[in-house]
Simulated assay, not measured.
Amino acid sequence: MAQERITISSEWGSVTAEFADNAATKALIPMLPLTIDMSDHLRQEKTGNLPSPLPTSPRQREFKNGTLGLWGPDHFVVYYRDGQVPQPGIVILGQVKGGASIFDRPGAVSIRVERAK
């Protein structure tokens, strides 16, 4: 699969990301475009629910600013800080180009995820 580029936009701005090549992203691409209501969690990430579960893929514990992840089968995460999660870890969905610092603010936000033009 060629690197699939997406745009994540909100009232706070927009960022471009590239999806990883795994079963989870292959299942997510046909769902696009998506609007996801995100809440702030632990002042390191925005999290929200996908409309349906994604297949599992290899997991890892570490993440960095801009990592797109999957926590549980339908829990989409945008990390705006570096860190790590407990076992079993997250499925890496992709990486925001240049980081996701636009989401580094308290409170909820609605995001739009769509294929980049």
Score class of each variant (00 low, 15 high):
111 I>N: 01
17 A>V: 11
102 I>M: 15
82 D>G: 07
48 G>Y: 06
44 Q>S: 12
7 T>E: 15
113 V>P: 00
106 P>H: 12
82 D>W: 02
36 I>R: 06
57 S>K: 07
26 K>F: 00
97 K>S: 14
45 E>C: 10
111 I>R: 01
68 L>S: 04
17 A>F: 01
37 D>C: 02
44 Q>M: 14
90 I>M: 14
71 W>A: 13
19 F>N: 02
15 V>W: 09
44 Q>P: 00
71 W>M: 08
81 R>S: 12
3 Q>P: 09
105 R>V: 13
98 G>R: 05
112 R>Q: 14
51 P>G: 06
88 P>A: 09
58 P>G: 04
68 L>V: 01
24 A>M: 08
111 I>C: 02
95 Q>D: 09
83 G>V: 11
80 Y>Q: 03
44 Q>T: 13
92 I>A: 11
67 T>C: 06
73 P>F: 02
29 I>V: 15
2 A>T: 10
117 K>Q: 13
104 D>P: 04
61 R>Y: 10
87 Q>N: 13
20 A>M: 09
100 A>F: 01
74 D>F: 09
9 S>M: 10
82 D>M: 05
27 A>K: 06
25 T>M: 03
11 E>V: 04
64 K>L: 02
115 R>K: 15
4 E>K: 14
40 D>M: 14
73 P>N: 11
31 M>F: 10
90 I>Y: 02
12 W>T: 01
102 I>Y: 03
80 Y>R: 03
109 V>W: 01
109 V>N: 03
107 G>T: 11
115 R>Q: 08
41 H>Q: 11
81 R>C: 05
88 P>W: 07
85 V>E: 10
116 A>T: 07
4 E>G: 00
2 A>Q: 12
72 G>P: 05
93 L>T: 00
66 G>L: 13
42 L>A: 12
51 P>I: 06
49 N>I: 04
20 A>N: 08
81 R>K: 14
33 P>W: 02
22 N>M: 11
105 R>M: 12
4 E>V: 15
79 Y>F: 15
46 K>R: 09
103 F>H: 05
87 Q>K: 12
43 R>W: 08
14 S>G: 01
25 T>W: 01
114 E>N: 00
106 P>V: 08
53 P>N: 05
18 E>T: 12
44 Q>Y: 04
109 V>R: 10
41 H>E: 05
19 F>L: 15
110 S>F: 01
101 S>V: 02
25 T>E: 01
39 S>N: 12
47 T>S: 12
57 S>D: 10
115 R>L: 14
78 V>K: 07
16 T>R: 14
96 V>T: 03
13 G>C: 10
4 E>M: 13
39 S>Y: 10
